[in-house]
Amino acid sequence: MQNILVSLNEATRTVNSGSNKVTLLDNINFNVEEGEFISLMGPSGSGKSTLLNCIGMLDNFTGGGYTFLGEPVHSMKEKNRSKLYKEYIGFVFQAYHLIDELTVYENIETPLLYKNVKSSERKAMVADMLDRFNIVGKKDLFPIQLSGGQQQLVGIARALIGQPKLILADEPTGNLNSKQSEEIMELFAQLNKEGVTIIQATHSESNAAYGSRIINLLDGKIV
């Protein structure tokens, strides 16, 4: 029996838009086991990103239960929640979101700073990661000097550096051409084989096929 990483129980998110109450996520129920590679699919506005953000704790469900590694996230204080995601979750964004003022090396290093990792350890970890992604030669470049694929590579490296249990990727190949997409997806598949749990949101059938399970969303509901 695998460990249950994420467990959603009738998780709901509603927002007030003017006088209307809009339901973004409607009674979502599913579990994510460690080692899974899940693809969230659905058209624009179906709630993929919202669901990812809520699982990533950047956003909150407004109803239902959310347990992460057995801990009830929905009843946690902001501080503990932030501690939890800092420790266990890595993010990969469609627009990469690297910090323009930092070099490749420093971008990858940033999460470690926030985890108060010692300098010598940081050096070793970042060097490992650069090595693994074959970007040692680019470590002193700024994001603007890289291609989109390379930037996303750095983005993934940054997400992985903190050795998270779960990677959340929101349209990770949305801004890339097909060849670059393929490389990134191969990388995800590889990481998944090495034991990293991944949830990705995607439009693309072919990208979704890399996952071990597909969850389809429409209008905030699992279909």
Partner: peptide
């Protein structure tokens, strides 16, 4: 944007 990224990276 930088603020968003840093927060997502775990900055308080």
């Amino acid at each position: 944007n930088e603020v968003g990224v840093r927060k997502a990276m775990g900055s308080g």
